[in-house]
Design a protein around this nucleic acid. Sequence first.
DNA 1: AAATATAGCAACCGCCTAGGT
DNA 2: GACCTAGGCGGTTGCTATATT
Length: 287
Amino acid sequence: MGRQPCCDKLGVKRGPWTAEEDRKLMAFILGNAGRCCWRAVPKLAGLLRCGKSCRLRWTNYLRPDLKRGLLTDDEERLVVDLHAKLGNRWSKIAAKLPGRTDNEIKNHWNTHIKKKLIKMGIDPITHEPLEVRKQPQQASLSTTSAQSSTITIECKSNNGEKSQQQDTHINMDKDASSVGSESSPPELSGTNTDNTTSGTNGMHDQDPLVKWLLEDEDDLPAIGIVEEPWLDFAVENDVDKFNSIPSAMSWDIGATDWLLDYQDFGAGDSSLLEDASMVDSSSGSNL
DNA sequence: AAATATAGCAACCGCCTAGGT
DNA sequence: GACCTAGGCGGTTGCTATATT
């Protein structure tokens, strides 16, 4: 039988996105919120891309509510804490950091945080001191004893200055074996996080952080993650989406931050937004 | 200045799950 | 219940920029 490819590989462009493609995609999505599925987006938007690729580009790069730049110290500490609880479930972690994507956090973890932790003698997988791993039977089998330790993460601010050393409390009150590999903890893997509230993880329920995490299924708006308004059928197609959106949507960022963020689009892309709004109307002809 | 190594990040791949039929 | 599809997720790859020799 086999699974059908998400799109016809033939004639599908791959590799880095051009500014023009970004414009087209952005204009289409903002102008046609909720009107079709990702599979149909490339065709309707006039792109020679796979729908999956479009979705990825949108969620990881074009979404108006994305923050750009390095993670702040606070965000970094939160990621470490969350990773200690959740393992490599980047999307769950990202859900707690408004404006950050799972891909971004994953990359940041692999390139920055991991190294920091190793440098500090902390196992980035188990969040335990590296020495502990020399005694595998203890590290992997002493599963239920709730451990807790306070470690210090040396963070550098964006201007390269060392910030004050921050105490980061990493609770290692989890099943050591559950984070003994890069994969998700067995009891947490599989069907999302639904299992996390049950059975053997009862102890997690007492952890405020875990409580908070487990609540995320229902309270996304409360933490700044709103349902994607641009994919909402109810979103009105204003003349200038790029200007209307920040005020129309309740993103958890300053009303104009996203505009500043778009300076990152690349050379000469300050004109991108203007162009995009123009493309918006022209791309409508593709529909 | 050129060559090489390393780091960082965007994008892709393949698997999994949810939802519809 | 079986099958199919779309979307989501995490792991991995590959390109580019920067640092080092």
